[in-house]
């Protein structure tokens, strides 16, 4: 499907549960409520006409002024040659969301990375632990208000001036 046709089809499929951005530049995307996150992803991945079976990229972005973290999933279908960007927003304090790892196994590691770098927990994730940073590291580096700890196990993390 062309991207316009896909957008029309998904609008028909999901009805009023979707919100579309119409940005001046860059990619168009669809935002859904975090309660619907898992179900909508499941629908889009398994629906015959969408068949978005490939989770191309999954990541988060911190927006402290909105007090929210945005999760962005880039999905794609090899058979239909179309892709869709799905987003949801969760609060920064609670920062919990349902896991997508049952739908796309690739999400197991992507969610570990989001947990590690942005401090978002995923319900029912099979193996939620830090992936890039050491297990005993303090804080989540990709949060905009992150302050790096001064020492790690007695080793200074910055060079002396």
């Amino acid at each position: 499907m062309t991207s316009e046709a896909l957008i029309d089809y998904v609008k028909g499929l999901l009805g009023d549960k979707t919100k579309w951005a119409d940005p001046e530049a860059g990619d168009n995307f669809l935002t859904v409520a975090s309660e619907d996150w898992k179900n909508i992803c499941q629908t889009l991945a398994t629906d015959k006409k969408c068949s978005l079976t490939y989770l191309r990229n999954f990541t988060g972005t911190d927006y402290p002024e909105d007090d929210e973290i945005e999760l962005t999933a880039h999905t794609f279908s090899y058979s239909e040659k179309h892709g869709l960007i799905i987003k949801t927003r969760i609060s920064r304090e609670a920062a919990v969301c349902d896991t997508l790892s049952k739908i796309w196994p690739a999400a197991i590691w992507y969610e570990r990375e989001i947990f590690d770098l942005l401090g978002v927990s995923f319900n029912n994730h099979p193996d939620l632990r830090r992936i890039l940073m050491p297990e005993d590291w303090v804080g989540h580096p990709l949060r905009k208000d992150y302050k790096q700890q001064e020492t790690y196990r007695g080793i200074p993390t910055t060079r002396p001036a």
Partner: peptide, 20 residues
């Protein structure tokens, strides 16, 4: 660049190398 976001990818030696 204007406000917005983009996902761009190329076929690298290890396949899709993408940047968001």
């Amino acid at each position: 660049p204007p406000k917005g976001e983009v996902y761009s990818c190329v076929e690298g030696a290890r396949g899709e190398l993408g940047v968001y």
